[in-house]
Design a binder for these strands. Sequence first.
DNA 1: CTATTATTGTCGCAATTTGAGACAATAAAT
DNA 2: ATTTATTGTCTCAAATTGCGACAATAATAG
Lengths: 239, 239
Amino acid sequence: MEQTCYLRHIAYDSVIFGFSGDKLKILITKYHNTGLFALPGGFVRMDENLNDAVRRGLKERTGLDNIYLEQFYTFGDVARFKPEVMKTILEANNFSTLNYEWMLDRFISIAYYALINYKDVVPTPDVLSDSCDWYSMDDLPPLMLDHSEIVKKALQNLRDNLERRLVGMNLLNPLFTMNELQRVYEAILGEKLHRGAFQRKILSMGILKRHDKQYTGAANKAPFLYSFELSNGAKLEIR
Amino acid sequence: MEQTCYLRHIAYDSVIFGFSGDKLKILITKYHNTGLFALPGGFVRMDENLNDAVRRGLKERTGLDNIYLEQFYTFGDVARFKPEVMKTILEANNFSTLNYEWMLDRFISIAYYALINYKDVVPTPDVLSDSCDWYSMDDLPPLMLDHSEIVKKALQNLRDNLERRLVGMNLLNPLFTMNELQRVYEAILGEKLHRGAFQRKILSMGILKRHDKQYTGAANKAPFLYSFELSNGAKLEIR
DNA sequence: CTATTATTGTCGCAATTTGAGACAATAAAT
DNA sequence: ATTTATTGTCTCAAATTGCGACAATAATAG
């Protein structure tokens, strides 16, 4: 983690979405001894693709490879330059600000959102953080710098892309019921959808493969399980 | 243009769209004595917002303020790091590579697209370029580095945003006919649209104000002129 | 002044998509 | 066997879209 290792002035932040208990959640880290909450982020090595840097960070935080990842905006206002904040974090961790002076510079942050299966993840804090935990989108702690704005824009982008790309299933198990999928869509869009119309629409797209029924033990008709599968050689991008 | 003035490793590129002769066009600059074509780009000052840097560059290139501008992607692959190219440009302009060594570093580029009224612009080359001219999207010269990819992605984004935001009119005069607007949409989407359906749809959105007719001298019914105007307090963002 | 021509604003109709409710099927409990 | 909750599917109305048609009209030609 030396100065020469990373591109100066460049950082990334990631909004990592998961779905649990009918709620859309994201991963938030908390820095040691500071009470500061932040999005998981990191820096780009000199010899590393930007996208690869983000995937590396995601791997460290979630243990997952092959995550659905989307870049959505780059934040570059001068107002986000607040060296005191970074200084606080470094000092709270007994990092000499001499060696890490480059971290006190102005940064531009490229923001990504990721969709992962909540169950697959054991959130792991990094060196500076003492926790990395899920928070419901409707119950986030106050975030440092402009991270609240980043989250807001991430959700906005996810919603916009929900129909065009077919990303809902990335938040679920490989096998899921129609009801689970609908609840994911409802959590993302923040509104109730009509069951019949939703089922009809999704099925008409021909991207789901139907499997055996799921017998949950509940006293009612068992739902089919589905997996995401392009039957014909259809492209992922709709339209 | 000294080293200390700009943020290292950070550049922007802009895809500036105009509409003329039923064609969608963009501005391309050509560097002195090199035969290299590129998108208009620039750097971010230490004390300057990223978005402001782009607007500053746009102002220099087009003379226009208040341009419709959209950030769409940040390109950060290592593969775009080709110091020879920049060196060629600097040497062709008799710029000492000593003073401009920072320009030979690896850069991450934040890409924007702009929509402007073709007629309003007198394209102006910068210090390093000997021309800044319009090129039809279907007849672009070979562009340096990954600039062709940037253009491709810009068009893709513009198309995706065309319905959601109502951006077509930014390429036209304040007063325009329905036919002109349709031709803009067709140029962007790259397909013919049905006249009746287009008119009905646009008018139903209630965002156009109808003005007097335009008597062109042609032997046919004169079309109405329209301007873009939100009648009720509607938001620009649709949906 | 009348006929012609090209283009415009608008309408009608069929086809398609969407919203909302209804109903039979069914897995498990009573 | 009956009840309960949920599922898959259907029907019908409402809204949207694709496509052609028609009258209106600005200028020109005769």
